[in-house]
Design a protein around this nucleic acid. Structure first.
Lengths: 345, 345
DNA sequence: TTGAAAGCGCTAACAT
DNA sequence: ATGTTAGCGCTTTCAA
């Protein structure tokens, strides 16, 4: 099955009794061809089931109509949705996706990017939530010759291209909502070092202070890794033990939906009813926030849009040779569902 | 940023003061090169940051070290996990992935495959649970010149390559487990036309009959689309209304975890405790089965393995020019968790 | 050990 | 309107 010769433009030319360039012309329809010849060629193409070799085309055009994606984890539903958004834009604009998973490893991330570049992708969308990587990997150099767009990363370098969610604003909305409901003892559930958790912790500290609400030693809960299955169990356990303690909060603000679902489970185990006894608000709006019971009130990051816009931005840069330094900041949306209500007392 | 000339092997040759072929030789390390020359060339490569153009290489080699994936929905956690399995195999074997999403549309599926072929992928892994597509799309023709492996599809054509789960065996295990626990009124929750649901319904009918357990009009519940967020709500509603009725089952066997979680939610809403009052068993073992409360007992399809093995099979066919007609049937595994127990009465 | 030259499949200038 | 030719960046004979 392998030794098989894939039919080339030359085969078609022979079959049709014309030159290679004529065949090329009818394929691309970019130069005049007499209708008689055209028909002959088209018949030959059909007969031989000819399919132009994109590799050869790319070599000439110096354009592959391919973009690379690097995500830290394709099974992380956040990035799955981002990929879907990119896929959508790519299909409409006639690009194909080369997918890489760095598994959150900075070293592997560089390898992925190098591989994509050597495969001549027209550009790359990179999602990396880890601040240090973004700084360390010297993307400015790569950006000199390859179009790059970053998603939700550390956007300090103003000469790079970013599509970001306004996570501060989202966190603020969540907190204000909880506070507006009357909550005073609100706990923050976060994970290990990530740009995104840091932002939220900052907002949390500031907002609580502004409202003269106390933050104690127990107020900020770190559940470790924030993006694995264990995240849920860890959050569940911590919340459970808090609820068994003497001072009970009335609300939890979770840095992502996985943690929020964990909190939900912890409440259930402790016999605490959500939202009657306690309120929980999540962040992201991944699918599980919609299928939990009760459904999670959460801050929607619109990951599809994030991916979609980043791909569109990338393609714009590629095709219109647009300058670097672009930045889109997306607004989050508070999705009111069933996991929050005013505190009892 | 675009007009930039990517450095080529020619640039390196000039810089090092040698011929192009010599540079090629040191890159590929396949022909003798004097150490003096080698050093010169390596220095030039480093200096110019030369990265070989894979497109050019592929054109010569007629090999891209790229495989295509076609899934009916990347956001469907089942396929996300399959993709992850493929990704893993590909990284280890030095292949890169071109990802396509057919969105379950047979027409689009053909387009994706055509696109991948014209991009000269070395092979394609296709996941399509819809029986009709598999039959209609004339893959036998494509398989003549391109390596193809199918995942969990309709495996009637023995001349194609398949990696399958033994879903019958899985369904049987689930049912026998429930029956062994003492359940008699077991309901099946399934979705619209798909190879996979049909298999399970068959096993359900046979197994119930064998055990002389009645199947009534209400026994088989169709929740419509089986793979969207709505699946959960639909299943939840149906289960809720059943539980409000006069004849209550003691167990549900759901054709996938989404339906099982829906059933879980329906129970909760109806004030029915799982597994004390009712047992639920799922199928697949996607992430949500692990984070539900209680955790779902389910039949693990090991999607990672499914993807992994399919990629390995594909690469084997590609590299060793192995014959078509390969078939791997994976065993499922019953994952005992917390959603099943003996019936009360 | 090295260089020159042909060619992978295709496009695009240049002829005719 | 069509054919001829030169190359895209690289590998691989073939000579030297």
């Amino acid at each position: 099955m392998d030794g098989k010769h894939r039919t080339t433009i030359g085969d078609v030319a022979t079959e049709a009794g014309v030159s290679i360039s004529t065949v090329s012309r009818v394929i691309n329809d970019n130069y005049p061809v007499s209708s008689k010849t055209r028909v002959k060629v088209e018949k030959a193409i059909k007969k031989l089931k000819f399919n132009p070799n994109m590799v050869a085309r790319s070599l000439i055009a110096k354009k592959t109509n391919t973009i690379g994606i690097v995500v830290p984890g394709i099974t992380n539903m956040f990035f799955t949705m981002v990929v879907k958004g990119i896929e959508n834009a790519c299909r409409l604009r006639n690009y194909t996706i080369l997918l890489s998973d760095s598994e959150g490893d900075g070293h592997r991330e560089v390898e992925c990017v190098q591989n994509l570049i050597s495969r001549q992708v027209d550009g790359i969308v990179i999602a990396d939530p880890v601040t240090e990587n973004m700084i360390r990997l010297k993307y400015d150099e790569i950006a000199q010759h390859t179009a790059l767009v970053f998603i939700n990363g550390y956007a300090a370098d103003s000469n790079m291209n970013y599509v970001l969610n306004d996570e501060s604003e989202g966190a603020l909305k969540a907190l204000e909502y909880l506070i507006g409901l009357g909550h005073k003892d609100i706990r923050l559930i976060r994970g290990n070092r990530s740009y995104s958790y840091d932002i939220k912790e900052n907002v949390y500290r500031n907002t609580m202070a502004e409202h003269k609400l106390a933050i104690g030693k127990q107020s900020i809960i770190n559940v470790g890794d924030g993006n694995s299955v264990e995240t849920v169990d860890n959050a569940s356990k911590v919340v459970y033990s808090i609820l068994k303690g003497s001072v009970k909060p009335t609300a939890f603000f979770a840095c992502n939906d996985l943690m929020a679902v964990g909190a939900l489970n912890g409440c259930k185990k402790a016999g605490v009813v959500v939202p009657d006894d306690i309120s929980i608000i999540g962040f992201d709006g991944i699918m599980i926030s919609e299928i939990s019971e009760p459904k999670l009130t959460t801050v929607d990051q619109n990951m599809f849009e994030l991916g979609n816009r980043s791909a569109l931005m990338l393609i714009d840069i590629i095709e219109n040779n647009a300058a670097n330094g672009q930045k889109i900041v997306l607004k989050t949306r508070l999705k009111l569902r069933d996991s929050c209500s005013p505190p009892k007392c």
